[in-house]
C-alpha cells in the first residue's frame, strides 16, 4: 500500500486531507452552535451554479466558487433579513432552485464537468493551487474563529441579550456566514457538495452529544474529524468509492455510534 504514496496525486490528496482535518471539524462546532448547518448546505449547492459559470467564463472552478459562494451567502442573509420566511423554508427554496438552475446549465452547455465529481468531490484530482487555497482558507478560518469565538458564544446563548450588551450581532453573523461560504467553496473540490455537510456537521454533532464544555466539544470534534478522514480515505483507496462519499459514510457511522453511546437528555437531566 506504501507504493501508493510514490504518486503525486496521492500525496496531494493526503495533504488536502490534512488541511481539511485540521480546520473543518473545528468550524463545524461553530456551525452547529449557530444553527447554520442548513445554510452551509445551501451554499454548497450553489456550487452547481458556480461550476456552470466557471464553464461559461472558462475559469478555474475553484476560483469562481471563491467569488460566487460568499456572494450567494450574502444574498441568502439579505433574503432572510428582508422576508419573514422561516429559515428552513427559505433554504429549501434556495437549495432546490440553485441546484436545478446549475444542473440545467451544466447539462445544456455540454461541459466536460462531471456532475459526479461535483457531488462527491475528487480528492485524487487535487492540484497544487487547490492545496494553497485550502491552506489560505484554514489560516483565514482560524483567525476568524479566534476573533469571533466570544461574540459567537454570546449570540448562540441568547441573541437578544448579546445585542443588548453591544455585540454587533448582524455584522458578526454576516462575517461568519461569509467565512463559512469560503470554507465550503474551497472544500467542495476535495469532498464534493453532498459530503461537505457531513464533514462540517457530523463530527461536531457527534462531539456535542459527548461533551460537557465548548472547549471539550472542539477537542472531540477535531479527533472525530481526523478519524473520519483517515478511515474514509483508506476506504476509498481500498474500494472503488469516491473519497468524499467514503468520508461521509464513516462520519455517519461514527455519529450513529456516538449518539447511541452518549448519555441521553433524560440521563443528563435537561
Amino acid at each position: 500500500m506504501l507504493d501508493w504514496f510514490a504518486f503525486d496525486f496521492v500525496r496531494n490528496a493526503l495533504l488536502a486531507m490534512v488541511l481539511l482535518a485540521v480546520f473543518y471539524p473545528l468550524m463545524g462546532v461553530y456551525v452547529v452552535g449557530q444553527r447554520v448547518a442548513y445554510f452551509g448546505d445551501a451554499v454548497a449547492h450553489s456550487a452547481f451554479a458556480g461550476a456552470a459559470l466557471a464553464a461559461i467564463l472558462d475559469w478555474q472552478m475553484g476560483v469562481v466558487l471563491l467569488i460566487t459562494a460568499p456572494l450567494f451567502a450574502l444574498l441568502i442573509a439579505w433574503f432572510q433579513w428582508r422576508t419573514n420566511l422561516p429559515t428552513d423554508v427559505l433554504l429549501v427554496v434556495v437549495i432546490t432552485s440553485v441546484s436545478a438552475a446549475g444542473i440545467a446549465l451544466v447539462s445544456l452547455l455540454e461541459t466536460p464537468l462531471s456532475l459526479g465529481a461535483l457531488l462527491f468531490g475528487d480528492l485524487l484530482a487535487i492540484e497544487r493551487s487547490d492545496l494553497w487555497r485550502l491552506l489560505a482558507v484554514d489560516c483565514f478560518g482560524v483567525a476568524m474563529l479566534l476573533w469571533l469565538t466570544r461574540p459567537l458564544i454570546r449570540i448562540g446563548f441568547h441573541r437578544e441579550l448579546a445585542q443588548a450588551q453591544g455585540v454587533p450581532v448582524r455584522a458578526v453573523e454576516t462575517l461568519f456566514l461569509v467565512g463559512l461560504a469560503l470554507v465550503v467553496a474551497v472544500g467542495i473540490r476535495a469532498v464534493g457538495i453532498l459530503p461537505m455537510s457531513a464533514l462540517l456537521v457530523l463530527p461536531a454533532a457527534a462531539a456535542r452529544a459527548m461533551s460537557r464544555s465548548f472547549r471539550g466539544m472542539l477537542f472531540i470534534s477535531a479527533i472525530i474529524g481526523w478519524l473520519c478522514l483517515i478511515l474514509g480515505f483508506g476506504l476509498a483507496l481500498w474500494q472503488p468509492i469516491p473519497p468524499g462519499a467514503a468520508v461521509a459514510l464513516v462520519a455517519s457511522i461514527v455519529f450513529v455510534l456516538t449518539a447511541g453511546v452518549a448519555p441521553s437528555r433524560k440521563e443528563r437531566g435537561w
Binding site: V32, G33, T149, R150, P151, I153, R154, G156, F157, Q165, R208, S211, R212, S213, F214, R215, G216, M217
Partner: peptide, 13 residues
C-alpha cells in the same frame, strides 16, 4: 443542546 460551562459563558460575556 450546546455544551457550555458557566465559566465559559461568563468569560464570553
Amino acid at each position: 443542546s450546546m455544551p457550555l460551562l458557566v465559566s465559559e459563558l461568563l468569560r464570553a460575556m
